[in-house]
Design a protein around this nucleic acid. Structure first.
Length: 702
RNA sequence: AGCGGGAUGGGAUAGCCAGGAGAUUCCGGCGGGCUCAUAACCCGCAGACCGGUGGUUCAAAUCCACCUCCCGCUACCA
């Protein structure tokens, strides 16, 4: 938009959101890294100097908690995952120029420099807040280090959110009956002074920034609510040992405070670029040309480097609000674009690691599938912004149909025909039509990249192969070899040229397969080093017999994989690690109330007039969180009842459900609606009582 | 609840920002062709009036309003 088209004279940095070193990688993570890698490769294709950097996110309370559970240090715990990630990414052809982590020396230094800049610029304020504290262990308990009871719904809740109950976000100090996640000791709240970054200092700046930033619609629009409203101060410190020390004034009295992970996490983008420069030298890539601003007043000037962030759509605010403010406060450059990808689902349902409804990175590779197939599926499956569903069925369908049948088949039949009849590229000129078609493909590649239409970038070679199949079919060179050899040579020359163009254009999405095709054409080196317009240069006059680029995935394979996945999900459910129904998780920790000692007489029981009924209608009561208005047929008449079950049941499914109704309950009026009776239900989840058989409506409970 | 994103032939997806001849591609169905090629490839047909209701316009899948359903975010979780 407001930016100069790629390639620019400045270097670019492409980043992907840091993986949190807390668990194995699955296809959901991989989508982002593949997208970022493809963007970086495509930028290089058009001649943009580009560094692709990332690193592991090592800090934060979840890692501290999980490390404690395993009895290892947070650093050792996180490092293990860090190394796993560093090894896994290249296996998916995600090749970072530098992959660091937030706990390394570079990031500690850079982060502290940032914070000092904010302090010097008077953007940091101090405030007293309530923090949970474990007096027995002399331990502060920020964020998830404390758990207790949700003040809103009474469910067990973590310190930061009511994760099992009402899903509400909880402020520090809100959780009732707090206990330490680490020791289980009861906790108390204490006043504690913390540091805050005054985001409102950057309000005007952010408003201008969001207007000139490029990227996906969600990334450009979602932050507006915050940026155009009142910006709260961001608490940037935590009472923990694990993290980067708050630099403070002369180190006095601040040594027990570390920085909030969302402070040092994005700064790793800068640190990782620095490390890249340290390794290759400033002449090869100068991090300062990208990250620092030559002229403070010229943020949008042409001298600044191009920063492109690829993230998941759940961390937009952090990258489009906090991060630009952090950069600005330290005198750094701003992002040119933020690309927020959608989520990945499995077989039409949400991916769930606890239920093991996931396809793991290692699993995919262990099954022997080529990484480029996965990359293709993720990039070409749908637009970057929308959620994409992964299923082995679809995977096989797309690989077999689009890669094997279309792209692979075209290249194979063309090169094989060329090799058998001409020993390589026929001696003829490329026809004008084909030349123009390839030129169009190159133009579309560049245009799509400049608008961050990554899917369209990936579609270019496929569409070219489509054209190729059509072209070869229409001209039937196999009929011409005898009748019109010159014409046959011409057609095959065109086809070989198209195959070469495909190799160049498919490289960002399928780098390894592109190289394989490149080699089959008899080209030297890697297609990675070929410029985009080399797609039009003549291929070598001779090359060897080609091989099939992609192999069919058999139906039996897919059946196996589906079964494996289904079994795994079932196992995870049976093991009770998690359950099919959200609510069942509560059942695990459920402790029934102790029994009442007081006994009642049979006559007392007889006072309760309970009847079998059937729900006829169920509709929500406006302005109420829980209440629903039910009409229940109890044989002799139909009763209107108000019941607190709105959140706990799908009202649309209730009509037809048999229930037990206390008919002689005193009448009540709730939210202006009369309740004439009471529907019996069990527990906090209001599990409705029903009949086992088919007792007629109106039957008395006795 | 507020904000953001989405709802398109049987399934999956594009188009919407820059409104215009009853809409893309893939899978599936039907009918042809070809045989160089991995039962691949090519051509043709059937099938959606583009979540619902209104509005703007000569013209709307595309703009506006309201509604329904799904997903995300809502600031000191990562």
């Amino acid at each position: 938009m407001s930016h100069e088209a790629f390639p620019t004279d400045n270097p670019a940095v492409v980043t992907v959101g840091l993986p949190y070193a807390n668990g194995d990688l699955h296809v959901g993570h991989l989508r982002g890294y593949v997208t970022g890698d493809t963007v970086a490769r495509a930028l290089r294709r058009v001649g943009q100097q580009t560094a692709f950097v990332c690193g592991s996110d090592m800090h934060g309370t979840p890692i501290a908690v999980n490390a404690a559970k395993e009895g290892v240090s947070p650093e050792a715990f996180a490092l293990e995952y860090h190394e796993e990630y560093a090894e896994t990414f290249p296996k998916f052809n995600v090749e970072f120029d530098n992959y660091g982590h937030t706990h390394d020396e570079t990031n500690v230094e850079t982060t502290q420099e940032f914070v000092r800049s904010w302090i010097d610029g008077d953007h940091v304020v101090e405030k007293e807040i309530q923090v949970a504290y474990d007096p027995a262990d002399d331990q502060w308990l920020p964020d998830r280090l404390v758990e207790g009871t949700c003040p809103y719904c009474g469910e067990d809740a973590r310190g930061d959110e009511c994760d099992e109950g009402c899903q509400r976000h909880l402020e520090p100090g809100e959780v009732e009956d707090p206990v330490s996640t680490l020791s289980g000791n009861p906790a108390e709240y204490r006043e504690r002074e913390h540091k805050f970054l005054r985001l409102s200092d950057f309000q005007d700046y952010l408003q201008a920034f969001i207007d000139r930033m490029d990227g996906t619609d969600n990334a450009k629009n979602q932050p507006r609510e915050w940026i155009e409203g009142e910006l709260q101060d961001l608490c940037i410190t935590r009472d923990m040992d694990w993290g980067i020390d708050y630099p403070g004034e002369d180190g006095e009295g601040e040594e027990d405070l570390v920085l909030y992970v969302w402070v040092d996490a994005p700064i790793e983008y800068v640190s990782s670029t620095k490390q890249y420069t340290d390794r290759v030298g400033e002449d090869a890539f100068d991090w300062e040309e990208v990250w620092t601003v030559d002229d403070e007043d010229e943020l949008t000037g042409e001298d600044n480097g191009e920063i492109v962030h690829v993230i998941g759509r759940d961390i937009i605010q952090h990258h489009a609000v906090f991060w630009p403010a952090m950069l600005r406060g330290a005198g750094y450059n701003e992002p040119r674009a933020i690309l927020a990808t959608g989520f990945v689902g499995i077989d039409g349902k949400a991916l769930s690691t606890s239920r093991n409804r996931a396809v793991w990175a290692d699993e995919y590779l262990d099954e022997g599938f080529h990484p480029d197939l996965f990359r293709y599926y993720m990039i070409n499956g749908s637009g970057m912004e929308t959620d994409v569903d992964f299923s082995w069925d679809r995977f096989a369908e797309r690989v077999n149909g689009e890669l094997v049948g279309n792209l692979g088949n075209f290249c194979y039949r063309s090169l094989l025909f060329a090799e058998r009849n001409y020993d390589g590229t026929p001696d003829a000129d490329v026809s004008d039509d084909v030349r123009e078609r390839i030129e169009d493909a190159i133009d579309e590649f560049e245009a799509a990249l400049n608008e961050y239409r990554v899917r369209d970038v990936g579609a270019v070679p496929i569409e070219l192969a489509d054209y190729g199949n059509e072209y070869i079919q229409r001209n039937e060179p196999w009929k011409l070899t005898d009748d019109d050899p010159e014409r046959a040579a011409q057609v095959i020359r065109d086809c070989v040229q198209i195959a070469k163009a495909i190799a160049v254009l498919m490289q960002p999405v399928m780098p390894e397969k592109a190289d394989a095709l490149w080699a089959q054409l008899g080209e030297d080196g890697s297609v990675e080093d070929a410029r985009l317009d080399e797609a039009l240069d003549a291929p070598p006059a001779t090359f060897d017999e080609p091989e099939e680029l992609f192999g069919q995935i058999e139906d039996e394979r897919i059946e196996e994989l589906n079964e494996k996945l289904a079994e795994r999900v079932e196992e995870a459910t049976e093991d009770g690690e998690d359950d099919a129904e959200e609510a069942n998780e509560d059942t695990m920790d459920f402790e029934p109330e102790s029994l009442t000692d007081e006994r009642i007489s049979f006559d007392d029981f007889g006072d309760l007039d309970m009847r079998v009924g059937e729900i006829e209608t169920a509709e929500p009561i406006e302005d109420s969180d829980k209440l629903a208005r039910l009409e229940v047929d109890i044989g002799v008449e139909t009763r209107q009842v108000v019941a607190g079950i709105k959140q706990l049941h799908d009202l649309a499914e209730l009509p037809g459900t048999r229930v037990v109704l206390l008919a002689n309950m005193e009448k009540a009026e709730l939210f202006g609606v009369e309740s004439n009776g009471m529907v019996l239900a069990a527990g906090d989840e209001a599990d409705l009582l029903t009949t086992h058989g088919d007792a007629p409506l109106g039957s008395k409970i006795q």
